[in-house]
Nucleic acid binder design. Structure first.
Lengths: 354, 354
DNA sequence: CTGAAAGCGCTAACAT
DNA sequence: ATGTTAGCGCTTTCAG
């Protein structure tokens, strides 16, 4: 058999059919202006006839770039990350690049593997949300290797990242609670050690409390993955009740958590906001559709994704340019503005029964 | 310069450092048992010392499979698709495969391009949600080319797909509305021509209406992308009001739309469900967190994604196997069970004022 | 404007 | 158990 059995047409097949060399085919495809119109036409005809589909792997192996962008996110179950991904998509749209996506479920080991895998595929750059970017040697390694990379959501001041100032944002949110008259405010969060963002938000909570002369309370940490979240919340509430220390407001480290907490409150017979005010963080779109609408600290998720991708692209392109990359700004943090969304879940605290 | 300037270590570099041939290195990496322990150790040491990162492109170009799965979804803005993607991720987890993700915004042209792009990257298979799978020549082409492919959400009976029976599911949902006492039920949807699912759901709506001896009403189509959706809804309501033909229940073609509609209703001063019942479709998790909770037709989104991915993997593996693929079931539709979620947004219609 | 030829990094026969 | 060698499909000098 003189021909390949493989059904897929080769650049050689096209060349043969067009009566030219493979080099000419390649040129016709990539730099049409370098080819005589007549030849070009023949090549195109041949390619069409053979349903030629250029093999990106060949090109990528040969070439300098792959056009692939690696994206690593904790989960898509939280719309915050899906939104961000939409922003990323929007930013690379039209650039001819594609996304290689991995989720890690906040698992540091998976993070390691995922990054390695992406690098083996020779992605041109990385867009990452790490569980904890602060204590990550990974990042130093990446930087040392000269991998183009932007963090997303992680606000690590000294690293290339796009985020909001979680600490300041949280403080501002909690200040709003205080302003509404609350003094007994507790922060509810997933495992603190597992998320640098949650930690910074807790710091912000502390800032706001102290600024108002109040004593920060320990955070109420509940397992994010536990099925019985509602129950845990109710238990905790009952406990606080017995201690006579039920807070009047809860600051939830993210909106998804806030929704779960609100449900638990409802099931426990507590009304929001009459019996308990609730403040979230993220600014999920669904929050506005609820009634009462969810008060929250809004971060511009889509924009975060978009900016991160844009910065990454700039970073990547900088390597190609003669100028050896000096827009140093790409190497540092970009903090996007946050915003407080007042919502129906926050009201003045119930009157004390003293 | 006898050495490459490129900082990245080659398989040849490793071979040299380990004092063996590149073939041995390759074996050490892919089939350690074929290599003497001692040599293996040397190779591993060399690889580690050089921070050798195997280039997947080389392997993929050479080999039969790339380990890449192409995923094409309309958007990630609707959690239904994000959920599905989670299921896909879960299914491929541990198989060493990676996801190449593209979103199309329901744009048929983008669908074309995206698929072509994915194919150029030589993905092993495709997971697709098309805007309209019924009138798609794309799919016939793919089938003809022998591309492994599963549709997701599109319920095209004759095609390889994983979905729910949208028509039957919608009918069942609407029947529930009728059972609650509603007779004036209108379906609200995005552009009908743009989505085969919406079309089938509308058929189901018609089935249920006729089965109860009621006359199906024209669907109320509102532009999904319009910013002024709320306003459109209010206008429409006002119009119906004047005509004395305000429905008592709305069947929304998806949950996201239902949430938007409910907001518009609220802004128009209508209470749900007292003045108007609302039924959604999808079963988004947030629906259960609302109050009142959203009544909806639940499709198992994560499971849909998971099954689709599993079937695709089976399909891909079938090509490798000696048996030339005969689990014909993979070639046809898999309909997963749906479920009616009763919720607070549906009640008996208000008493007629006659 | 076009062609010949040298690889990109890797795997898989085929020989030792 | 290990080495040699021939490509996978493509781009890109370097020569015409």
């Amino acid at each position: 058999m003189t021909h390949k059995e493989n059904g897929v047409a080769d650049i050689r097949d096209v060349a043969q059919r067009a009566g030219c060399s493979i080099a000419t085919v390649s040129r016709a495809l990539n730099s049409p202006q370098l080819v005589r119109p007549e030849t070009l036409a023949r090549v195109q005809a041949a390619a069409a006839a053979l349903k030629f589909r250029p093999n990106a792997l060949g090109r990528q192996l040969r070439g300098e770039r792959t056009g692939l962008i690696g994206v690593m996110l904790p989960t898509l179950g939280n719309p915050v990350f899906a939104d961000c991904l939409e922003g990323i998509e929007a930013a690379i749209d039209g650039t001819g690049r594609r996304l290689l996506l991995v989720t890690t479920q906040y698992d540091p080991e998976r993070e390691r593997n995922a990054i390695e895998t992406l690098l083996q595929q020779r992605v041109d750059g990385l867009l990452l949300t790490l569980a904890d970017a602060e204590h990550s040697v990974l990042l130093d390694d990446l930087a040392a290797e000269g991998v183009a990379c932007q963090l997303v959501y992680n606000d690590a001041p000294e690293r290339p990242c796009v985020s909001v100032d979680n600490r300041a944002a949280a403080a501002q949110g909690v200040a709003m609670l205080i302003e509404a008259g609350h003094r007994d405010i507790v922060m509810v969060t997933g495992a603190l050690h597992a998320s640098d963002r949650a930690k910074r938000r807790y710091l912000g909570y502390g800032d706001a409390m102290r600024a108002a002369g109040l004593t920060p309370l320990p955070a109420f940490e509940i397992d994010f993955n536990s099925g019985a979240r509602g129950e845990r919340v109710r238990e905790w509430l009952a406990q606080r009740e017995r201690d006579g220390a039920r807070p009047t407001a809860l600051f939830c480290s993210n909106d998804l958590l806030a929704l779960g907490v609100m449900r638990a409150l409802r099931e426990a017979g507590l009304r929001v906001p009459d019996d308990m005010s609730v403040l979230g963080f993220d600014g999920l779109a669904v929050g506005e559709l609820l009634s009462p609408t969810l008060a929250t600290v809004v971060q511009p998720s889509v924009e975060i994704g978009r900016h991160a991708a844009q910065r990454l692209l700039a970073q990547i392109d900088a390597r190609g340019g003669a100028t050896p990359s000096h827009d140093a700004s790409l190497g540092h943090a970009l903090m996007l503005p946050h915003e407080i969304r007042r919502g129906g879940t926050v009201s003045a605290p119930p009157r004390r029964q003293d």
